[in-house]
Write a protein that binds this DNA or RNA. Structure first.
Lengths: 253, 253
DNA sequence: CGCGATTTTGAGAGCCGTCAAGATACGTGG
DNA sequence: CCACGTATCTTGACGGCTCTCAAAATCGCG
C-alpha cells in the first residue's frame, strides 16, 4: 500500500445495491442474491489520490478492485525509465486479474485522478465461482473484454502511425466515456498529460506534442485544459480505421 | 469454416482422459469428474493445415477451441494490408474467448502448421460454469494468463527497439516451447516466416531481416531451416530485459 | 528443372527520437 | 493578489532507426 491511499474501513460507504454506477444502462441488472453476495465479497473501499499507486508490479496484492470513481491506468516498466501504459481504467472496470489470478502482479496500476475503489477479497474468489456461477461467468467475461481492449491497443501501437494512434486513442476513450455518460457531446475530460498519451502509444513526448498540434491545426481535435474534444469524428474514425466496440452491456462487480 | 479444415466428426480421436498433453507437468491434474465433463463439452476435433484460418475476425463462431497439436497465431487486420499478430498459440491454449465471450470475433486465428484442435460447444459454456465451478475458475484463469501475455507483448512493441523486440520474442517462444517440452536445448522449431515475426513485432520485413542478421553475426541467435537457436541466453535476456513468467502450472481444457 | 515463396542486400527517404531551451500553466507561500 | 518554483507544453534543430523501393540470391516443392 502506498501513501496517499486512505482507507475507509468499516464505513463501507457505498452499499452495492445502492451503487450509483448500477443505474447506468451499460451495466446489466443484478439480482438481489447476486448483490447480496457482492456485498459480502467487498471488504473495503479505498480512496487514492492522483499519481498514487493501487497495485505495484511484482507485489502480491491480496485484493481485487472495482473502480467506483475516477481514472486509473495500468502500466508496465522496463529496468531503464521506459514504461508502457497498457490501458486506462474507468469506473466499472475490474482490476487485479490481468496477468495473474494469484501471485505477483505483472503490472502496476496508478490513479490518474482522485479515485474510489471497491476492494474485494481475492481469497474469496473461488467461493464466488463456487456459490455464484453466474458471477464467475461475469468475471471470465470481463477478463475476455479486457484482453480484447489490449489486443486493439496492440494493433494500434504495432501498426498505426503517430496520428492514427492518437486518433484511435481519443476515439476509444470517447467511446468508453460515452458509455459511462461522462461526455458532453464529443468532449470528455482527460485527466492525464501528454506524457501519459506518449507512454500509452509508444511515442516520444515531443512527437506526441507535435502530432497533437498538427491534428488540432487540421481541425480534427482540440486539446486543452484537460479536455479533449473530437471535432470531426467521421474524419477521425476514418484516419484511425477504428470502430466502436465497447458499447456492450456488461456486468459490474 | 474455411477450406483446408477437415473434420473428424464422430471419430473423437483423442479421448480427454487419454490426452497426451495432460502428461506434461505444466498442466494441472484433473479429476475424473472434470475429465468426464470436458469430454462431453468437447463436440469435435478438427485438423487444419498451415495458412488456414480457424476463426475469422467479424464472424460469429459458435465454438471454442483448445490447441492439441501445432502452432497457430491470433492477428488483427487494418483495412489496408497492415496486420498485427497479437500472439502465438501453442498446444494447451484455449482459443475463442479473447475479446468476446459471445458475439463476433474481434480477431482472426490462423494455423501456422498442421494443427489439431478440440472443438467445444460455446453454448455449453454457461453449463460449465454452473456445474463445474472449478472449471469455470480455470477458464477465468486462462483468460487472465492470456491477457498477461498480450500485456507483455504490448510492452515490447511499444517500448523496445527492433533487436530488443526480437530478443524478447525468441525468449518468450523458447520459454513457452520449453514448458511443453518442445525444445532441444536452447533450440526450438519456429514454423513461421520472417514476415510473421515482423507482423508480430510491428517491424517491416526488411528491417526484421537485417536485425536478425546482425544478431546472428553478434553470436546471439541462429536462424535457419525453421529452427531458432538461442546461442547466448544470458546476453539475450539482458538485451530484452525479459524474464520468464510462463512456467506456472495451468489448467488444460 | 522451374517457379513461387522467402530471404538477403543496397540505396535513399522519412517518421520519429533526442537534445535543448523557451513559454505557459498551476500550486504554494508570502 | 503577487511572486516564485515546478510541471507541462511548445518549438526548433538535428540525427538515426526504421521504412519503402528495388532487385538479386536462395530455398522449397512439384
Amino acid at each position: 500500500m502506498s501513501d496517499g491511499m486512505s482507507t475507509k474501513a468499516g464505513s463501507r460507504k457505498t452499499a452495492c445495491k445502492a451503487c450509483p454506477l448500477r443505474k447506468l444502462s451499460v451495466f446489466r441488472a443484478f439480482t438481489p442474491t447476486e448483490l447480496e453476495f457482492i456485498g459480502r465479497f467487498k471488504i473495503n473501499e479505498i480512496h487514492v489520490g492522483p499519481g498514487h499507486s493501487i497495485i505495484q508490479e511484482g507485489s502480491e496484492d491480496p485484493s481485487l478492485y472495482t473502480v467506483l470513481e475516477g481514472w486509473a491506468f495500468r502500466h508496465k516498466a522496463l529496468p531503464d525509465d521506459r514504461r508502457q501504459i497498457v490501458g486506462f481504467s474507468f469506473p466499472g472496470d475490474f482490476l487485479g486479474l490481468q496477468g495473474q489470478v494469484f501471485g505477483a502482479a505483472q503490472h502496476s496500476i496508478e490513479a490518474l485522478t482522485n479515485a474510489k475503489l471497491c476492494v474485494f477479497n481475492r481469497s474469496k474468489l473461488w467461493e464466488l465461482f463456487n456459490s455464484h456461477p453466474d458471477l464467475g461467468f461475469d468475471v471470465a467475461w470481463l477478463a475476455a473484454r479486457s484482453e480484447g481492449i489490449v489486443d486493439e491497443h496492440l494493433l494500434a501501437v504495432g501498426q498505426r502511425s503517430a496520428s492514427e494512434r492518437i486518433a484511435y486513442l481519443f476515439l476509444h476513450l470517447l467511446d468508453r466515456c460515452r458509455a459511462l455518460e461522462m461526455t458532453k457531446g464529443d468532449r470528455f475530460e482527460f485527466p492525464g498529460t501528454q506524457q501519459h498519451i506518449a507512454d500509452a502509444l509508444g511515442l516520444s513526448l515531443v512527437h506526441t506534442n507535435k502530432t497533437l498540434r498538427r491534428m488540432q491545426a487540421n481541425g480534427l481535435i482540440r486539446w486543452g485544459h484537460s479536455v479533449v474534444e473530437v471535432l470531426d469524428q467521421q474524419r477521425l474514425r476514418q484516419l484511425a480505421h477504428y470502430e466502436e466496440i465497447d458499447a456492450r452491456v456488461r456486468p459490474l462487480l
